[in-house]
């Protein structure tokens, strides 16, 4: 598993696998939007009707939400609450933790049901967890390998100054 303080690195191949899994879950659970967020609040991937959604804010608030409920869990002697569910008038949000590090968010309306979402999320979570296992293994191998050069190794002070111009 990826440690809580290590950088998360995403490669093209694993990203494509994740997108395929999210698309499949979207179809099978009959939901509106699905997104995957790092526990630190970074959006990893999104699928479905995302055009009118502020996914960056959603990602950050979801991570805040998981962090706050995680804090609550510890106070009562639980490790974490692995599933959260918010019920609205039209739309509902189902949030679950995958592989201890990433958060899977499913937004659905009356075309689906909590039972169906839970069932499909459970299966997809296991598949996603194994992709993240591979990802962790790969990024560890790459960081150890002597000939891998970080694309940021050559960053100069000028590059950084240019960002602010």
């Amino acid at each position: 598993m990826i440690g809580p303080q290590s950088s998360l690195v995403m490669y093209e191949e694993e990203y494509q696998q994740i997108v395929v899994l999210l698309e499949k879950l979207l179809q099978e659970s009959n939901s509106k939007v699905i997104f995957l967020v790092d526990k630190n609040g970074q959006l990893i991937a999104a699928s479905g009707e995302t055009a009118n959604l502020d996914t960056t804010s959603l990602a950050s608030l979801t991570a805040g939400n998981i962090a706050a409920t995680g804090g609550l869990a510890k106070l009562i002697g639980e490790k974490e609450f692995s599933i959260l569910f918010h019920e609205g008038e039209k739309d509902n949000i189902h949030i679950s933790i995958v592989g201890g590090r990433v958060i899977l968010v499913v937004i659905f309306d009356e075309r689906s049901s909590l039972g169906l979402v839970r069932l499909r999320v459970k299966k997809t979570s296991m598949e996603l967890a194994s992709v993240f296992e591979e990802l962790a293994f790969r990024s560890e191998q790459e960081s150890k390998s002597a000939d891998s050069v970080s694309p940021f190794a050559e960053i100069t002070d000028d590059d950084i100054d240019n960002l602010f111009n």
Binding site: S6, L8, V9, G41, I44
Partner: peptide, 15 residues
């Protein structure tokens, strides 16, 4: 920690 995404070619950092 930072999130380096080679798929979308993005670096995300938290301050």
């Amino acid at each position: 920690m930072s999130f380096i995404n080679y798929a979308s070619r993005e670096i995300n950092c938290k301050i």
